[in-house]
């Protein structure tokens, strides 16, 4: 009882009265999200509801026009994106942002922070051995991550040459490589070959079982039903309803929102 109360009153990640305007258009109005630590939460809603915009604000890529964002009892709105990421909140991009000219492997090898090889000292002659050792460790881990998403055979390919679906896998791989506390996955299955979707769900479960809180924007209701313990429906910039996947699926307002008719 007490732990449940604690969970309810202290979500790991929370937005309060979040507001975002684009010019005259109110994209997000009074959005209140409460994400419990260790959960897999689905964020669904019709196109243009503002789901990606919420992710961008949480991750520091977009400045909100009002409201607050809290993570583990700390207010994080206003922090630049890289500082939010350092707290362990890692977002993926809806349209894949691969590092085009880098190899798939290098796309992951840039991830670890404070690499000695990325400092000027690492360029000095006596730094060589330490850098090689570090590189070796990072490469091993990167290959292990590529293996989990099934991209290991593409390690040496230029990231720009991957297919759309493979780029989405690379997005998830990069997120995993970051050792996140919270993973914000923006439509991870969109564009992925249907035969791979089961594997992809398994990857997300692996991430989750590693203790990561997962928030997932997803249009594929099948995926939402099977993966998420909690679902939040966003409509026209605000939370319309939330609950278990089953209760959401039965909610008539949700159906109406998706069909575009007034509730």
């Amino acid at each position: 009882m007490t732990t449940e109360l604690l969970n309810v009153s202290m979500p790991e990640l929370e937005t309060r009265h979040l507001v975002k305007r684009f010019g005259g258009m109110q994209a997000i109005s009074d959005c209140n999200l409460r994400i419990a630590g260790g959960s897999i939460t689905g964020l669904i809603g019709p196109n243009g509801a503002g789901k990606s915009t919420v992710f961008s604000m949480i991750s520091g890529f977009l400045r909100s026009d009002g409201g607050e964002i809290w993570f583990k009892g700390r207010r994080i709105d206003g922090l630049p994106a890289h500082r939010v990421a350092r707290l362990g909140i890692i977002r993926t991009f809806q349209t894949p942002h691969e590092l085009r000219e880098l190899s798939v492997l290098e796309n992951l090898m840039v991830v670890p922070r404070s690499q000695f090889g990325e400092s000027l000292a690492g360029l000095l002659p006596f730094g060589g051995r330490r850098v090689r050792k570090e590189e070796h460790e990072i490469e091993e881990r990167a290959i292990a991550v590529l293996r989990t998403v099934g991209l290991e055979h593409h390690a040496q390919h230029r990231a720009a040459d991957l297919s759309g679906g493979q780029k989405k896998l690379l997005e998830i791989a990069r997120c995993m490589m970051c050792n996140p506390k919270v993973a914000l996955l923006d439509e991870p299955t969109a564009g992925v070959n249907p035969s791979l979707i089961n594997d992809l769900m398994e990857v997300i479960r692996v991430l989750h079982n590693g203790g990561v809180t997962v928030v997932i924007i997803e249009h594929n209701m099948n995926v939402v039903m099977r993966l998420c313990g909690h679902v939040v429906v966003l409509d026209r910039g605000a939370v319309m309803c939330e609950g278990t996947p089953d209760s959401i699926q039965r909610d008539e307002r949700v159906l109406a929102a998706y069909l575009g008719s007034p509730p």
């Binding site: 994106a81 890289h82 942002h97 590092l99 840039v110 991830v111 922070r113 990069r174 970051c178």
Partner: peptide
């Protein structure tokens, strides 16, 4: 050079 938003998103 390729995409600085990626570099920010990994915390650098």
């Amino acid at each position: 050079r390729d995409d600085e938003s990626v570099v920010a998103s990994i915390g650098k």
